[in-house]
């Protein structure tokens, strides 16, 4: 075991991954098709596609939705490797493991005899993986093509209470603060410990650090509250409604919904 505790290691890599996941606006800054759209259109559009992929009883429709989403990513300069790395691969691994046994366990006419795979099993497994992949792809494209503050504004369109939107924004912001704090805690303790840690010590360490974090979180929330009050916050939330729909946005929204309805309808029941 290296001298860096593995708790710390996992945290350090997580900080990097999270920064990448949440802040990197690499794709959101590009000048592609989706980036030009109002975030509410994207939110509505992709939610509709996710719904279609989950609700349809037709595998072809799941596949069509998947390819439609991928095409949208392609025309929005979102690299397919990013999709593969962050959605396709993890979902394939995770859901794949779960779906695999269904091949053998689902009762129905046999497709292959040797290890008995049933037609129903194959269908069930394909449905599970197909839906999970498609929905995850849609969600990821939405997040990758939209700047976080814009996404927050868009969530307002779902009639979520303002307070929820503000809390979401602040949560994202303080995740970094606390992650850094956690990293510092682990680093500080590591500098005082030379010998490799056994599991028990590491568990104690994790619990102690979580304890420090919880107490810091409470202090922090008090401080942030004071800072909000100082600027006139009295419990009611007011936000600037910054978004304006342009003709193109309406067109895109209509298209999105038309495609979703068509797919759903063509899929039939």
């Amino acid at each position: 075991m290296s001298s860096r505790s593995f708790l710390e290691r996992s945290l350090a890599s997580f900080v990097a991954i999270i920064e990448q996941a949440i802040v990197a606006e690499e794709f959101a800054r590009r000048d592609g098709f989706l980036q030009k759209l109002d975030p509410r259109v994207k939110l509505g559009g992709f939610l509709a596609l996710i719904f279609v992929s989950v609700a349809t009883h037709n595998l072809a429709i799941v596949a069509a939705t998947f390819f439609l989403a991928t095409a949208l990513a392609f025309f929005s300069e979102i690299s397919l490797s990013a999709l593969a790395l962050r959605a396709w691969l993890p979902v394939a691994l995770f859901t794949g493991v779960i779906a695999m046994p269904a091949l053998f366990l689902t009762p129905g006419p046999a497709l292959i005899r040797a290890p008995m795979i049933t037609a129903n099993g194959l269908r069930a497994a394909t449905f599970l993986i197909g839906r999970a992949e498609t929905a995850a792809t849609c969600a990821l494209i939405l997040v990758l093509s939209t700047k976080w503050p814009h996404l927050l504004h868009a969530l307002r369109a779902l009639r979520l209470p303002r307070a929820v939107i503000v809390v979401l924004g602040m949560t994202q912001r303080y995740i970094f603060f606390l992650l850094r704090a956690a990293q510092d805690l682990f680093a500080a303790r590591r500098s005082r410990i030379i010998a490799p840690l056994d599991g028990r010590t590491r568990r104690h360490l994790a619990a102690a650090n979580a304890g420090v974090l919880i107490s810091r979180s409470l202090d922090l929330s008090g401080e942030v509250y004071a800072a909000m009050q100082a600027r006139g916050f009295r419990g009611e939330i007011h936000t600037l409604e910054a978004l304006r729909m342009r003709p193109n946005d309406w067109l895109a929204l209509t298209l999105f919904l038309a495609v979703a309805v068509t797919l759903f309808w063509v899929g039939g029941h």
């Binding site: 503050p149 401080e223 800072a227 006139g232 007011h238």
Partner: peptide, 23 residues
């Protein structure tokens, strides 16, 4: 505030400046 991490709680600088006048 002494600690800007406490004071800056909005998603963007623009929102940060808009906070007080909005309230």
């Amino acid at each position: 505030f002494q600690n800007p991490d406490v004071q800056l709680f909005n998603p963007t600088v623009f929102d940060e400046l808009a906070f007080a006048p909005l309230q």
